[in-house]
Amino acid sequence: MKHLLPLLLFLPLSGCLDDDDLLEPLRESPVTVAFRAEYDEAPLAIQREAYAYPTGDSLKVLLFQYYVSDLELLPAGGGEAVRLADIDLIRWMSATEDATVERTYSVPAGSYRGLRFGLGVKPELNAIDPSEFAANYVLNENEFWGEQTRYVFAKIEANALLEADGRYDTGLSYHMGSDSLYTTVTFDRTFTVDGSGVPTLTVVADVLEALSGTGQTFDITDPQKQTVHGGNQAVATGIWNRLAGQFTLETE
């Protein structure tokens, strides 16, 4: 007992070292990963904006969302990636929301060579039913089709004006997902996290690029192509591939 007090006094002192370099690998600093949604390179305005579409029609976007799995920073010197999140749902669904949503993480200080994530729900999580999670978890029954088709990886919903009546009354609903669609997105970009500021990495996704890009335009006027759900993924494969291929990364 009588040795306890000196020991308690000594322990905090022994935790301080003169050589800061020895602490470098353990130091953590914040980094912000932002997700910005756009339509034709302008910030996405849910419901508020009427957007031109290449078929000559226009549409108002009501929902844009996608899952990201294994969001990771890639250390410049190689080694194990720094996991920021196992799963996250990035969603825009309200006219009052900003086009950019942010997450801030604490990561080891150092140099990095890029950022990586899986677009969709990674297979090991896609195999787990929503009942295994809490009702307010990002993987829940509202984003789940059923036993066979599993989680909806991404959704684009809009109302289109296809006739000259001024009414946005044609629903477009593209729900996509399956293990076979899961795609890893990797950005090669060097940046440093050193605690002198909070670096921001902004992942940009453009809804128009997903619907109409790389020389292909999804024909929203075709009634056969206005809804894609569950088992008819083939219709939306082009949308998915364009969505997965159009992400860009901005750093500041």
């Binding site: 009942s131 789940f144 066979q148 075709d222 056969q224 809804t227 759900h229 569950g230 088992g231 008819n232």
Partner: peptide, 21 residues
């Protein structure tokens, strides 16, 4: 439920907003 709706099919699709359980 909407798990296996053929393309272009007009369908009640209750499960969109009312999925089990």
């Amino acid at each position: 439920f909407v798990e296996n709706v053929p393309p272009g099919t007009l369908h009640p699709g209750c499960g969109h907003c009312h999925n089990a359980p």
